[in-house]
Amino acid sequence: MNNASTFREELVKNIFYRLDENLRMIRIAFAQITEEEIWLKPNPTLNSIGNLILHLCGNLTQYGISSLSGASDDRVRDLEFSTESGLLKQELLDKLETTVNQVKATIIQVSDERLIQIKEVQGYQFSGIGNTIHLVEHFSYHTGQIAFWVKMLKSKDLGFYSNVDLNKRNKKE
């Protein structure tokens, strides 16, 4: 195996791990809330969990599918934030999982040349690698917001890492 394929495989493996890890945490958060709570807003200037899921789907599609595959960019970003109802928890979760799976399929198929090609997305100029870094960090950012809002609603820890010793130190090389 050459270094390029090793690098690509490691990059893709870690991108997929982070996408799946965010989905895992969102599933745990969703299990704690009611249908009504999905559309509640902490205050008028913040977004509901439903809005955040729609926003994640739009962002993942724009950065992870359209920019990498060359597919049409049909995102209507304002609708992600103005929607106030109409989708159930499971529908939102299904939409997010489908979008993540489509992003993963796109990443698997994208060429190395496209990963280093500069593409404009939302007025920013980044390579395909830059766009994948953005979509992972953006997904994590909003996953944290969802977790925080659910913790506030329920006054309890969500136990994302209850079976992991997070105090474990790195092994010395």
Rank of each mutant, 00 (worst) to 15 (best):
M25N: 12
K154L: 05
A4D: 14
K156A: 08
D165W: 08
L158F: 02
H142Q: 04
V12G: 05
Y124A: 01
K172P: 13
E10G: 11
Y17S: 02
G123W: 00
R75I: 11
R8A: 09
L23I: 14
L60D: 01
S69W: 12
A31I: 00
D165Q: 02
D94N: 13
R77P: 10
D157I: 02
T6I: 15
N167G: 15
Q125V: 00
E173S: 10
R169F: 13
Y17N: 04
W39N: 02
I129G: 08
L46M: 15
T83L: 06
I129P: 02
L52P: 03
M152K: 10
G64N: 01
S48Y: 13
R18T: 12
Q62R: 01
G159A: 03
R75W: 09
L166N: 06
L153S: 03
K171C: 10
N101L: 13
S111W: 07
L93M: 11
Q117S: 14
E137L: 14
I107Y: 11
K13G: 05
Y161T: 03
I107H: 10
I26G: 01
V121C: 06
K104I: 11
D73R: 04
K95P: 04
N3M: 13
N47K: 02
N131C: 12
E173R: 12
I116A: 06
K151P: 10
R169A: 15
I38T: 14
H55I: 00
H55D: 04
Y161A: 06
H55P: 08
N51I: 01
S140L: 08
K172W: 14
D78R: 05
A29M: 04
N170Y: 15
